[in-house]
């Protein structure tokens, strides 16, 4: 971390961006699982898509697919961010 003492400002900026990405991705995580899959499951179940009541689909299939995508998106975002702020390995 020797370079971080010289460029504290940019390091702080890097960390803020990272926390920002996490906040957005975790908001999506909570929305699909706790929102679509649990809290709003009953109104969503009134909608049927391809044989699935929508709320049920989110609870047993959709949220899991979204979780996988979220982790890979975070990986790619951080790959770019690490390079931009020159902290990559």
């Amino acid at each position: 971390m020797t370079q971080s003492t010289q460029t504290t400002g940019s390091m702080r900026e890097y960390w803020r961006r990272n926390v920002g990405y996490m906040a957005v991705l975790l908001a999506i995580w909570a929305t699909v699982s706790y929102g679509c899959g649990i809290v709003f499951v009953e109104p969503l179940n009134a909608v049927t898509v391809g044989g699935f009541p929508l709320g049920f689909w989110f609870a047993q299939q959709g949220s899991i697919f979204v979780f996988v995508v979220l982790i890979f998106v975070y990986y790619l975002l951080m790959l770019r961010l690490d390079r931009k702020y020159d902290v990559h390995e």
């Binding site: 975790l26 899959g37 949220s63 979780f67 982790i71």
Partner: peptide
Amino acid sequence: LMGWTGGYVLLAL
């Protein structure tokens, strides 16, 4: 299903 998969998002992030 959600409980045993959603934790990986927390782990990864």
